[in-house]
Design a protein around this nucleic acid. Sequence first.
DNA 1: TTAAAGCATAGACTATACTCTATACTTTCA
DNA 2: TGAAAGTATAGAGTATAGTCTATGCTTTAA
Lengths: 120, 120
Amino acid sequence: MLISELSKRTGLSTHTLRYYENYGLFKGVTDEKVKTNNYKQYDESLVEKLELIKEAKEIGFTLSEIKKLLDSWFSKRLSVEKKVEILETKIKEIDGKIHQLKQVRKFLVEGIEDVRKGDC
Amino acid sequence: MLISELSKRTGLSTHTLRYYENYGLFKGVTDEKVKTNNYKQYDESLVEKLELIKEAKEIGFTLSEIKKLLDSWFSKRLSVEKKVEILETKIKEIDGKIHQLKQVRKFLVEGIEDVRKGDC
DNA sequence: TTAAAGCATAGACTATACTCTATACTTTCA
DNA sequence: TGAAAGTATAGAGTATAGTCTATGCTTTAA
């Protein structure tokens, strides 16, 4: 598919998609058979990949972190052990974030009680 | 305490603290009795407040969101019901974030299995 | 008492992640 | 066939959240 369809499918603007592509998060390919233009084709699988990128961004990962994760994931020069290690590190980070969210949540729940009691 | 002590206590640079103060997240007071300078005094309670701000930032809240939350919290013109409503909305947001984190976590756990099986 | 360190304010600069504009070429469709 | 819409590239502009520098005054400690 071309970029405008990818845009429709993912909900990301063509600007953002090009920004991500230049950033190195994914790559479109120009069809060698077509000589008249250099339009890039984007693979179906990119839709899912971009959904993951969106999700990762929303939970606070930077593009740089996402890139590192994707690079290691699809890299052929990394050993299985190294890949697993990178993923496990990220999982620990996520667990840390969940813990922090629960902390703040607790704080807000207490806040509601304080407000109800008229403590502030 | 003065700004440098607040900086030491919170781990935030004086630059960042001044930025936050200008942003309206808190306020220091100049001692009216001292005429020679306009040094600002920061209250003990700010240490805890700033810890909360740090935590809220780490879990992805923007300064704007944090400001709104603090403003409503300490506002006298808001009704108890309105305050509770604002807090409950934030709690729902946090629950949403926890859900997203768990999604991505699941994805990464599956990723480890794929890597171990040699699927990528 | 004077040099060093601290304080305040203002404004410039930086990084991240877009977002928009300009230009030029290509495709599509009435 | 020609206007509208799509594509590519480059570069400028924006918002957020700092971070740094300059200037000038104040306090502190040798």
